[in-house]
Amino acid sequence: MSLEINDVSLLLGDGDQQVKALDHVSATVQPGELIAVAGPSGAGKSSLLAVCGGLRQPTSGTVSIGGTRISSMSPADLTRVRREKIGFVFQLSNLVPALTSLDQLLMLVHLQGRRPNKADREHARALLDEVGMSHRADRRPNQLSGGERQRVGIARALMTSPEIMLVDEPTSMLDHNRGHAIVELLAARCRDHGVATLMVTHDRGMLDAASRVFNILDGKLSEAV
C-alpha cells in the first residue's frame, strides 16, 4: 500500500492573487518508508499534506492511496478515506482537550461508528506502550509535556491501521533531542507497521532518520542527493 502523487498542481486564490502552492509535484512513498519533505514556511509543505490527506483537491494531477485515486472523490468519501486509510500526526498539542490519552485513540473507533470493544482497548494500550506512553494513558493533554503529546499523536495515527501516515512538523515545538527522539520513533513505527509515511518539516536537523529526503521550494519538489 503506497502513496502516489502524480503531477499534482494546486492553485490557491484567484486573479492577481493566484499562487501556485504546488507546481507539478510527483512522488511515491512505499509501505514502511518515511519520506521527509523539507522547506521553509510558505514553500508548499502544508499544501502537499492537504492534497495527500484529501483536505484539498488538486487543481490538476492525481493522488492515489493503495491504488485508489482520492483526487476526484466527494467530500463525504474523503471524510471516510481520512477515517479509514490515513493517519495524521499534527503539530504539537493537536489532541482533543477533553480526552485522556487512551480516549484520543478510542475516539477513532467511535468515529467509525462502533463502540470500542476489548480488542480495541488492548490495541490502543499496545500502541501507547509502543510509543512509551502507557503510564500516561489516563492523562489529558493539559497534563502532558510537548513530547508526550506528540507520542500520543503518533499512537493515535496508527490506531486505525492506516495505509499512509501524514506528519506535519512533528518537532516544531520541541528541543533538538526530544525532536530527534520523536522522528526516530516515527521512523521505527512506520517501518514496523508498514505504513507509507510522508513527513513535512522545516527543521533540517531532523532528516537523518528518513528513508529519503525531498526539498520543497515555491511548490516545486526535488529529491535531495
Binding site: 495524521f88 475516539m107 468515529l111 493515535r156
Partner: peptide
C-alpha cells in the same frame, strides 16, 4: 478542535 476531529475523519 472541530477542525482536528474532522481531519481525523469525523462526519
Amino acid at each position: 478542535e472541530i477542525g482536528l476531529v474532522k481531519a481525523l475523519g469525523a462526519s
